[in-house]
Write a protein that binds this DNA or RNA. Sequence first.
DNA 1: CTGAAAGCGCTAACAA
DNA 2: TTGTTAGCGCTTTCAG
Lengths: 361, 361
Amino acid sequence: MSRKRLQHGDQNGPPTVRTVAALAGVSIASASRVLNGLGASAETERKVREAAASVGYVPNAVARSLQARRTDMLALAVEDIGNPVYVAMMRAIEEVAARAGYRLQVHATGADPAGEVELIDGLARRYVDGLVISPIRVTAAHLTALARVPTPVVVVGSLPDDAPTGARPVDNVRADSHTGVALAVAHLVAGGRRRIAFVNGPLDTVPGAARHAGYLAALAANGLIADPALIETGDFHHAAGREATRRLLDRERPDAILCANDLIAVGALHALLAAGKRVPEDVALVGMDDTDLAEMSFPQLSSVSLGSAERGRIAAELLLRRLAEPTRPAQRVTVAPELKIRASSAHAIAAVPAPRIGETP
Amino acid sequence: MSRKRLQHGDQNGPPTVRTVAALAGVSIASASRVLNGLGASAETERKVREAAASVGYVPNAVARSLQARRTDMLALAVEDIGNPVYVAMMRAIEEVAARAGYRLQVHATGADPAGEVELIDGLARRYVDGLVISPIRVTAAHLTALARVPTPVVVVGSLPDDAPTGARPVDNVRADSHTGVALAVAHLVAGGRRRIAFVNGPLDTVPGAARHAGYLAALAANGLIADPALIETGDFHHAAGREATRRLLDRERPDAILCANDLIAVGALHALLAAGKRVPEDVALVGMDDTDLAEMSFPQLSSVSLGSAERGRIAAELLLRRLAEPTRPAQRVTVAPELKIRASSAHAIAAVPAPRIGETP
DNA sequence: CTGAAAGCGCTAACAA
DNA sequence: TTGTTAGCGCTTTCAG
């Protein structure tokens, strides 16, 4: 009586529809129907429910996914899942996803372009229904990968205008760093500041480049000349902000510092306070991203909100919407920036003579 | 020639092993073997690879999971994926998971016990291979759910000693708040502080209760009497810390404040500075968890590291290990706390007379 | 080394 | 309403 392999009847592992059906004395189709709330006679219904309860039946999500060709899972890929900006984004996405019955998978890419491309290509394995990705640098490889992606993707961050558009539309949600920087500069100028330094992150990143351009444009718009000596570049972190600010202070006497994000701004604040500067009396300080850090520092940090949570929420909604309507035209949403004025820049000073375009210093 | 339904041959959707096999003129078994790097003749190998490449074949992860009975996915469930403590934990877990070829799914439970239990029970759907959960409150329902869970689970946070042990061993990694608080108190006492206030989170949470008990024990161990007026309770957030500290200052003259986490401590710092207190000269301040916030505040915050990243790392490793050895006995790992002394408490003051146990004030 | 076929657990089309 | 059966796409015996 030895059998070559386990047969259906052998009840090992967890109960399946088969187990339930057998126990209830009905077909697996009937069992499945009842379990999915489809029509069945009262009697069948009762028997199946009873059987299911008695063995503690729980449907297998993987099998269901295979059949349904959907995983009810979304993925989020960002450089660093510990960065406050991405944390805010992730939180918003998780919330939207959970509310819609989707689970969220997170990937830390470490800003490795190859890894990001691999991830995008990996979507072909269909282990998630959609992806939100926020690449800090966008390479040609990203673009070609996006153009051939078989799964809905939303890119958070700016994409080149001439990006090749693939068979599948890619939605895009952006921050408006350019306007954001303009708001900050206008505010500082209004407060009487003229020597407005800028501590930025790497220029070869999407946000770094946008903020740099915005800074130059904003100065010009306010009739100020850009002094290269007032510009420092590091990475987007705290320590870099501190060091850049130290270098700046060794050399210059800025009356305001605009930082490309809050992490940098917090570092700058340390350097300023450690150097005995009063904030905002001596030097006004403005960050960007308006993360939780802004209101946790002392003095509280003015910051330009680029709507990270908002961008996350919108990205998730666009993704869900595209899941429902795969062919609708690609959307591009830009979230408006908002300047949050707090103590670090609230203090206006008397305007001091400062070089303006067209004047000789 | 009308067929009732789509047959195998109809090539819609993405290419499958079938497509590849047909194209290569071999059986699907051979195709699968080649694709999985198993033995095959050079000729078969070539034909299959060529066919796969020509159609851009990518294996379907869900189908593979169904067959393999594993998803290569882990889940993490915490109250709030934006809390710095959990962010540190998540980051560590994601890293360990990714390195081992697992993806990570995150769930924000909002500290809802029912939702957490549902999540644990949901593991029976087998959409993940394992779960790390850090419930802030542990109810009886948690315990029974854990006892019947069909999937490896690691609990981060203390479990009652008499927790019912189910068929499947549940690993557990804990912080040692008790010792952590003791380190902080001893440090403050050594700095000459005697009126050491304590701003805590809710007492009905695992960390809240442990830290409260630790505080009382530490005072006693240092010969100080506990003054209920020096104890404040709120939630674990920034605003609560600020308000609690204000109430405290309205009423008392603490020379040190110990906070149950860094978020609270940052709030306390605001209240202190706003009240014109010098930190640490007038009031020393110590937080807990040693999050990124600690070194970002000014003055930098002394904080008791409870090893959140470390706990995450260990939890992930325990989970991976259990995946490999499902029956090994349940492990309990406790991570040793470490006091990081920074500017907010670095300043020693002359010991002032303060009530000690056995003395009359 | 290769192919036929079973089966992972589930849903759905079709027929009865 | 119910049961039979064919798949979802893949891996894995088991023969040959």
